[in-house]
Amino acid sequence: MGSRGVGQVRELFTDARLVATRDLRIEARSRVLLNQVAPFALLVLVLFGFALDADQRTLRTFAPGLFWVTVLLAALLAVQRSASIEHADDAHTGLRLSGMAAASVFLGKAAAVFVQLIVLEILLTVGIVVLYGSEVDDPALLALTAVAAAVGVATTGTLYGALASGLGARETLLPILLLPVLAPVLIGATRSFDDALGAAAVDGWAWLGLLAVFGLVATVLGALAHGAMIED
């Protein structure tokens, strides 16, 4: 790669960092994640407890699946919030006029959602340990799974959030578009957590590989496709 190529890559990531910082600053000021998304996620964990008759053994067995279903539901809110930022005060027009590459905008927005998902996952991990009595057998696997799955959810979510934005009924459209695409993340992350939390005898590290591939594919596809979204 020549010096021009290196410069372009550096510019891509510098711009992405600017977008991510802007989104996180908006989040820090509005506190939507802390005041609305996180309480919603904890509420879902409690509702699962009620639905499963508050049986600690059952909850411990199914904690990985319940954890990831909760993450996906909360991620829908985070993604919708991330996309709506661009429509408030016509911010997306400002981004287009800034001359930033579409891939930079995509990576920046996905990075901001990723950070929010990581915060959410930390809270939910505490939630399942306290409420469901889960025990962490393999912290490294747990942490890496949380990161790999968050990459997949954040990148796919950002792409689909941009895709549904500006269309009628986007609030109802986003879940039916996004959730089936995230099926491999749900299965992979649940099985990996099964191993990390000692809920089932599976090879969680193999599942981590699938999550990493999903995250990589989603990042590349998202960066390539985001240009077509912001052409509008």
Binding site: A183, A228, M229
Partner: peptide
């Protein structure tokens, strides 16, 4: 049309 095309391609890759 543009957005639907992306959804179709992501679906096939998924």
């Amino acid at each position: 049309a543009r957005r639907a095309a992306i959804v179709a391609l992501v679906a096939v890759v998924d």
